[in-house]
Design a protein around this nucleic acid. Structure first.
Lengths: 110, 110
DNA sequence: CCGAATCCTCTCGGATACTG
DNA sequence: CAGTATCCGAGAGGATTCGG
């Protein structure tokens, strides 16, 4: 979404804060699609990358890190060579799925 | 959201298109807040501006134009001097409110 | 295979000044 | 009061290279 950000609203607009919180968490070019994709099942880095087939490795890493920081996804590194890394939704991340689905619904009808 | 954009997914990922459509429509620093605000009632330009009290006139105009282009809001100009302009949700815009509310809910609990 | 580090580009949004 | 026109800076995201 263009940019969703860390805006501060004054006291009297406190009611919109929660909305902005969610906006900030979901802001990022690929995050919605990633959530959508991980909802199906746990996925490897390379699987996500090929699903979003226009994304660069660097960008994907950034998006995943941010989502991990926001506690939306879990990162598990297998102690293997070559490395294998799997990403899955946390319960917090999974709690965003209803929003994703509503958005998908809306987009279908539009 | 940071940037929500006009990504093209290949055939096999067609299922995410609708999600991306919605993302594109909602992308923009102030759009969610504006939808939230206009849902209460029709508002004048200056009312919206003071609600989002950090926004500049130019930015507000841009956001509103985009939303108008996406047919989310309606713009009505009163033939007066000085000008008075009111913005309201279209039914299409109103159909986004459930999403907004879910997001607000989520932000409250987080 | 996955990711860190750089560099680079481009777009969004803010600041400012000006108009009817 | 509402809007347009310009200019500008910040930061998101892409490309590339290197490394474990």
């Amino acid at each position: 979404m263009a940019k969703m950000c860390e805006c501060l609203f004054p006291k009297k607009q406190e009611e919109v804060w929660p909305l902005i919180v969610t906006q900030n968490v979901l802001t990022g070019r690929w995050k919605l699609a990633i959530l959508w994709f991980l909802n199906r099942e746990t996925r490897r880095f390379s699987e996500i990358k090929s699903f979003l087939n226009d994304i660069s490795q660097g960008s994907l890493t950034k998006q995943l890190r941010e989502m991990e920081d926001h506690a939306l996804i879990l990162r598990f590194v297998y102690p293997e060579v070559p490395p294998r890394v799997e990403y899955s939704l946390t319960s917090r991340g999974r709690s965003l799925i209803p929003i994703i689905e509503l958005m998908a619904e809306w987009g279908k009808l539009s």
